[in-house]
Deep mutational scan, measured.
Amino acid sequence: MSIQHFRVALIPFFAAFCLPVFAHPETLVKVKDAEDQLGARVGYIELDLNSGKILESFRPEERFPMMSTFKVLLCGAVLSRVDAGQEQLGRRIHYSQNDLVKYSPVTEKHLTDGMTVRELCSAAITMSDNTAANLLLTTIGGPKELTAFLHNMGDHVTRLDRWEPELNEAIPNDERDTTMPAAMATTLRKLLTGELLTLASRQQLIDWMEADKVAGPLLRSALPAGWFIADKSGASERGSRGIIAALGPDGKPSRIVVIYTTGSQATMDERNRQIAEIGASLIKHW
Score class of each variant (00 low, 15 high):
residue 94 H to G: 08
residue 244 I to P: 00
residue 7 R to S: 12
residue 241 R to T: 07
residue 97 Q to E: 14
residue 229 I to Y: 04
residue 225 A to V: 12
residue 52 G to V: 02
residue 226 G to S: 07
residue 3 I to G: 10
residue 170 A to S: 13
residue 246 A to P: 00
residue 166 E to Q: 10
residue 172 P to K: 08
residue 214 V to R: 06
residue 245 A to V: 01
residue 204 Q to H: 10
residue 37 Q to R: 15
residue 4 Q to E: 12
residue 247 L to V: 09
residue 159 R to T: 06
residue 267 T to P: 14
residue 91 R to V: 03
residue 266 A to E: 08
residue 43 G to S: 02
residue 9 A to E: 06
residue 64 F to Y: 04
residue 37 Q to L: 14
residue 179 T to M: 00
residue 220 R to K: 02
residue 11 I to M: 14
residue 16 A to V: 15
residue 73 L to R: 00
residue 91 R to D: 04
residue 107 T to S: 10
residue 108 E to A: 11
residue 203 Q to H: 10
residue 224 P to E: 02
residue 160 L to V: 12
residue 219 L to S: 02
residue 87 E to K: 00
residue 91 R to H: 08
residue 172 P to N: 09
residue 106 V to F: 07
residue 277 E to G: 08
residue 144 K to R: 14
residue 198 T to G: 10
residue 174 D to H: 03
residue 77 A to T: 10
residue 60 P to H: 13
residue 53 K to L: 11
residue 226 G to P: 02
residue 250 D to A: 13
residue 15 A to V: 15
residue 105 P to S: 04
residue 94 H to V: 14
residue 118 R to D: 13
residue 213 K to T: 08
residue 103 Y to G: 09
residue 219 L to W: 02
residue 252 K to V: 14
residue 276 A to R: 15
residue 256 I to A: 02
residue 136 L to I: 06
residue 220 R to V: 01
residue 150 L to M: 09
residue 147 T to N: 14
residue 59 R to T: 07
residue 196 L to Q: 15
residue 125 I to L: 12
residue 75 C to S: 04
residue 133 A to L: 00
residue 38 L to P: 05
residue 214 V to A: 08
residue 98 N to V: 13
residue 180 M to L: 06
residue 60 P to N: 06
residue 160 L to P: 01
residue 58 F to L: 06
residue 62 E to G: 03
residue 145 E to G: 15
residue 57 S to V: 06
residue 214 V to N: 09
residue 38 L to W: 06
residue 195 E to G: 12
residue 226 G to A: 05
residue 229 I to V: 05
residue 278 I to P: 00
residue 262 T to I: 06
residue 123 A to V: 04
residue 227 W to C: 09
residue 245 A to S: 05
residue 221 S to M: 08
residue 81 R to C: 04
residue 4 Q to L: 13
residue 97 Q to V: 15
residue 98 N to H: 13
residue 202 R to A: 13
residue 284 K to N: 10
residue 13 F to V: 13
residue 40 A to N: 09
residue 243 I to T: 01
residue 207 D to H: 13
residue 218 L to C: 03
residue 276 A to D: 03
residue 285 H to A: 04
residue 214 V to L: 11
residue 80 S to I: 08
residue 238 R to H: 14
residue 47 L to Q: 06
residue 166 E to P: 02
residue 63 R to S: 04
residue 267 T to E: 10
residue 223 L to C: 09
residue 178 T to V: 02
residue 242 G to V: 00
residue 177 D to F: 01
residue 90 G to T: 12
residue 51 S to C: 04
residue 242 G to N: 02
residue 251 G to W: 05
residue 188 L to E: 00
residue 65 P to T: 04
residue 96 S to D: 14
residue 8 V to G: 10
residue 80 S to W: 15
residue 268 M to G: 06
residue 124 A to V: 04
residue 168 N to H: 04
residue 86 Q to E: 13
residue 70 F to S: 07
residue 279 G to A: 12
residue 204 Q to S: 08
residue 269 D to Y: 09
residue 243 I to F: 04
residue 125 I to V: 11
residue 156 H to S: 12
residue 177 D to L: 01
residue 44 Y to N: 00
residue 52 G to L: 02
residue 183 A to D: 05
residue 41 R to K: 15
residue 11 I to N: 04
residue 14 F to Y: 10
residue 10 L to N: 05
residue 117 V to G: 00
residue 224 P to I: 01
residue 65 P to D: 02
residue 10 L to C: 10
residue 267 T to Q: 09
residue 25 P to R: 07
residue 25 P to V: 11
residue 99 D to C: 06
residue 10 L to F: 11
residue 232 K to E: 11
residue 87 E to D: 10
residue 170 A to P: 10
residue 262 T to G: 13
residue 251 G to H: 11
residue 85 G to W: 05
residue 277 E to A: 10
residue 220 R to A: 01
residue 94 H to A: 11
residue 3 I to Y: 14
residue 40 A to E: 11
residue 220 R to P: 01
residue 249 P to S: 03
residue 89 L to R: 01
residue 85 G to D: 10
residue 239 G to K: 02
residue 160 L to I: 12
residue 283 I to D: 00
residue 228 F to K: 03
residue 101 V to G: 04
residue 13 F to L: 12
residue 82 V to M: 04
